[in-house]
Every structure is written in structure tokens, then in C-alpha cells.
């Protein structure tokens, strides 16, 4: 069992590995953490995920841009790959589930991938459908996983036309689901007009919006 000081050092090391996008260090320190019997869940939440939260702040402050975010996410996943199999089942408190994907007709997925990282880091279960996703696939996956949230991404003005259509399709099958959208041509106003419950301007604000929607669903359920 690692001493308190050693534990803090390792957690800080994991945090720094993500913030300073050191993929190798993230994997190695994760192994050391396990060797030192540091709880895998703690290593993720207080080390890797805390680092990713800081990365989100740096992105919002325009100190980090997409290249840094991509490398930070590589470091995050390098650590998660080592630590995740060692999480004790009862610890793995799932915050919520999200089905995420880029809508049909659009192959631009950098934004969606970054949003996925943020949800992963925040402890959500992410069902990533990828890019150029058939609209019915969103409906099927939400039904299959009973996910609280569906996240729809688009970069192109033409593929954004699929957004209102898929929102209607999802709602026709499930009333208790929050739908959030994001991507360059969308605005909060357009998102609302298209029938979405939420909108995230960038990856940095996506989790916050997801949490808001989960709270909204809970309230809605309580009122029934």
C-alpha cells in the first residue's frame, strides 16, 4: 500500500501526464499506481479525469487548442486502458449514459471525438456510433442502451438538416431522453428550433450541458 505522500505524487503525476499530453507517462504511472495498490477508481477520478478537467479549462481559456486536446485525450486513454479493468464493480458509479455520433452525410468527427473524451473523463458511459451515422441507428442505440442523453454532432450546413429529423425519430420512440446537439453551423437558437433540449458550443461545455439535461430529466420524472 502506498503512503499518502506517494499516492498524492502518483495522482499528481497522472494529472500532469494528461495536462502535458505525455501518453507514455500516463500509461506507466497507471501501472505504478496499480503496483502500489492505489485504487484504480481513485487514480482515474483524482488523477486522469482531474487532468482532463483542467484541459477543458485551458481550452476554454484559449490556452489549449484542438491539437493539444487530441494529445491530452491520447494520454487519458493510455491511462484509462491500464486502470479501467481494475475498477471494482461497486465503485463504478455511472453518472449517466450518452449515445453520441456525427449525423448521416458528415464525416467530420474531431469535435465529436473531443466531446466523447470529456464525457469519458467525467465517468459517463459513452456509446460512440462514429461518423456518417444513419439516423435510425441513433434511435436503435438509445433504445438498446436506455441512455439518458443522445448527442448529435454536425459540421456541415447540409448535414445539419438531418438534426430535426433524427430528433423527431428519437422522440417518437422515447419521451424520457435528453437530446443535445453541437457543431459549427449550429447555434443555441437553431438547436432550440430543431427541438433539441441542449446545445454545447464546444467540447469544454458539453459535459456541463449533459449534466443539466440529466437533472432536467430527473425533475420531469419526479413531476409525473
Amino acid at each position: 500500500m502506498a503512503s499518502r505522500k506517494k499516492t498524492q505524487e502518483l495522482l499528481k503525476g497522472l494529472y500532469n501526464a494528461v495536462v502535458f499530453y505525455d501518453e507514455k507517462a500516463a500509461a506507466e504511472l497507471s501501472k505504478v499506481a496499480l503496483e502500489e495498490s492505489i485504487d484504480a477508481y481513485t487514480a482515474i477520478t483524482d488523477g486522469l479525469a482531474a487532468g482532463m478537467k483542467k484541459v477543458g479549462e485551458l481550452y476554454a481559456a484559449q490556452e489549449y487548442f484542438v491539437p493539444e486536446l487530441l494529445l491530452c485525450s491520447d494520454a487519458l486513454y493510455a491511462g484509462l486502458g491500464v486502470l479501467r479493468p481494475h475498477i471494482k464493480v461497486k465503485q463504478a458509479k455511472v453518472k449517466a449514459q450518452i449515445v453520441i455520433g456525427v449525423v448521416e452525410g458528415d464525416i467530420h468527427d474531431i469535435g465529436k471525438n473531443l466531446v466523447k473524451v470529456m464525457f469519458d473523463a467525467a465517468g459517463w458511459i459513452v456509446h460512440d456510433l462514429g461518423k456518417d451515422v444513419k439516423l435510425e441507428k441513433f434511435v436503435e442505440e438509445q433504445q438498446r442502451t436506455n441512455s439518458e442523453i443522445v448527442g448529435l454532432s454536425t459540421l456541415m450546413t447540409t448535414s445539419m438538416l438531418a438534426i430535426p429529423k433524427v430528433i423527431k425519430m428519437i422522440r417518437s420512440q422515447s419521451t424520457n431522453v435528453g437530446i443535445m446537439v453541437g457543431g459549427a453551423p449550429l447555434t443555441r437558437d437553431i438547436a432550440k428550433r430543431y427541438g433539441a433540449d441542449g446545445y454545447a458550443e464546444n467540447a469544454g461545455t458539453a459535459v456541463q450541458e449533459g449534466v443539466r439535461l440529466v437533472e432536467m430529466l430527473k425533475k420531469r420524472k419526479a413531476q409525473k
Binding site: 456541415m156 448535414s159 438538416l161
Partner: peptide, 15 residues
């Protein structure tokens, strides 16, 4: 390349 021949596509993309 992929020509924009699907309903929701508007530009040529690299497959």
C-alpha cells in the same frame, strides 16, 4: 474521395 451523393451531404470529402 466521396462525392456528396447522399441526402445530407454538400461537399466532396476524403474517404
Amino acid at each position: 474521395i466521396q462525392m456528396p451523393d447522399k441526402e445530407y451531404q454538400d461537399s466532396l470529402s476524403i474517404k
